[in-house]
Design a protein around this nucleic acid. Structure first.
Lengths: 107, 107
DNA sequence: ATTATATTTCTAGTATTATCGAAATGTCAA
DNA sequence: TTGACATTTCGATAATACTAGAAATATAAT
């Protein structure tokens, strides 16, 4: 009964492609990795900046792109903005690739 | 003893990012999906073209990008070039995302 | 009210990517 | 060895993305 329903709309592929595209940038992938490793409470933008070491405007731009495709959510706590990885969105991506992958490879 | 060794080099992230970036384009993702669905014998470039419906030069360009990051291998059989999805490369990508994802989400 | 902190938005220069027609390449068949 | 077929490479244009300084916004503390 562990049945996953797969709804294949035209823009399912577009959505997945958009997320893959955003993850497909070294800086953004590093940011995302850092977020995931850091746990469910999220990481402040400023702390990401300390970790990654790029100008604030550039960082903000990269984060915004991931927010737009729902890979990250941002919540404000007073002056600090926390970035939270959205596991459900990532999981959709992984599932898509896995469905693709495992049809014939047996992996 | 089902232990997966994770070797984290600097350019592991770069490699994964490059593959994600190539998959992160609607046309290329559609091509890759078609390849995987079509099985281990591969698909001729011409047949991909019939399926996807874009000019040959554009298609060739997209395929070349995926070949460059080892997502696809091409083998020639007389006049026909077959494209074969490289499951191991895709699996590396999926594993990377899954390692990331599952640390804290419990997915 | 003023200042400091955290982060974004604006703006603009540079770089990379996408697209596709035309020409070139490799392969087979007659 | 000419012609047809399958696909790539070339070349040029258009579109998109990356980067980062400077200005703007939002919040808190004094």
């Amino acid at each position: 009964m562990k049945q996953v329903r797969v709804i294949e709309t035209e823009d399912q592929l577009e959505t997945i492609a958009a997320r893959l595209s955003e993850l497909g940038h070294p800086t953004r992938l590093a940011i995302y990795k850092h977020l995931v490793k850091s746990g469910i409470k999220g990481v402040a933008v400023g702390d990401i900046q300390k970790e990654i070491g790029i100008p604030g405007s550039t960082l903000s731009h990269h984060i915004a792109k991931m927010v737009k495709v729902n890979l990250i959510k941002q919540v404000r706590e007073s002056r600090t903005l926390y970035c939270l990885p959205q596991y459900d969105a990532l999981l959709e991506v992984v599932n898509f690739l896995q469905d693709e992958c495992c049809v014939n490879s047996g992996c």
